[in-house]
């Protein structure tokens, strides 16, 4: 039986990340702790995805230190990630869930699989090839796969970037229900409406730096930074 240790809070201490000679993130210090969803917002190329990948442990920082639950490093036991374009295994939807369950060391029995598919509204799609599902259905299946890990923290990288409004609504409803169960949700988006709908904690990232962190209410009502004000007005697009 795997010991379940908490991976929260996730602390960044003066973290920098560079790809070759190009600095992607610089001097990032932040804490992601239990609580309401956190939205990483910012223009394209701000470093949102990289920050999420570092928090997940998919990339290692070039400088600084990241700890999870006070410990450095460690495999992703209780954290899960949903990618902007999730890769579907060449199997049925149910087999995708079964794989994720087994990878998490959980029993891949029919009731568990059915329950997970049901949570994301894919109960009728269990036997369909995952790669034949629509974009919205694939994104929901990726969410179910992430939930199969029974995560304490769930990272979502622009989860609705390529979805139509109804697909976006379906994914947002699932994310809210996941957050309501006590899972820490951290997601990136450049959709301010989505950030308003889902998050209570906003982190604004511009050119690889955190320029503002505030509650959603105060950020959208009265941004403290010039960049925040520009972004809310829609002026900061680069």
């Amino acid at each position: 039986m795997r010991e379940l240790v908490s991976e929260l809070p996730i602390d960044f201490a003066a973290v920098g990340y560079a790809a070759g000679q190009t600095a992607i993130l610089e001097d990032i210090s932040l804490r992601l702790d239990r609580g309401e969803p956190t939205a990483l917002i910012g223009p394209n190329g701000a470093g949102k995805t990289t920050l999420l990948r570092l928090a997940m442990g998919l990339n290692q920082p070039s400088r600084g230190l990241i700890t999870r639950g006070g410990a450095r490093g460690g495999p992703p036991v209780r954290r899960a990630f949903v990618f902007q374009k999730p890769a579907m295994l060449r199997r049925s939807a149910a087999a995708n869930i079964a794989f994720a369950l087994r990878a998490a060391g959980r029993a891949a029995d029919r009731p568990t699989i059915a329950a997970l598919l049901g949570q994301v509204g894919l109960g009728e799609c269990a036997t369909r090839p995952a790669r034949r599902l629509s974009g919205g259905e694939q994104q929901r299946l990726a969410l179910a796969r992430a939930l199969a890990r029974n995560p304490e923290v769930l990272f979502l990288d622009e989860p609705t970037a390529s979805l139509d409004p109804s697909g976006t609504k379906a994914v947002e409803d699932i994310v809210l229900s996941i957050a309501a169960r006590g899972v820490k949700v951290v997601f990136s988006t450049h959709d301010l409406g989505q950030a308003r709908r889902l998050a209570t904690d906003i982190i604004l990232l511009v050119a690889g730096r955190i320029v503002e962190r505030a509650s959603a209410q105060s950020f959208f009502a009265c941004p403290a930074s010039a960049e925040g004000a520009q972004f809310v007005r829609g002026d900061l697009v680069v």
Partner: peptide, 12 residues
């Protein structure tokens, strides 16, 4: 190449 991120996120 296609699966790396997904499987790494699943601790594989």
């Amino acid at each position: 190449d296609e699966y790396r991120d997904e499987l790494t996120a699943m601790n594989l």
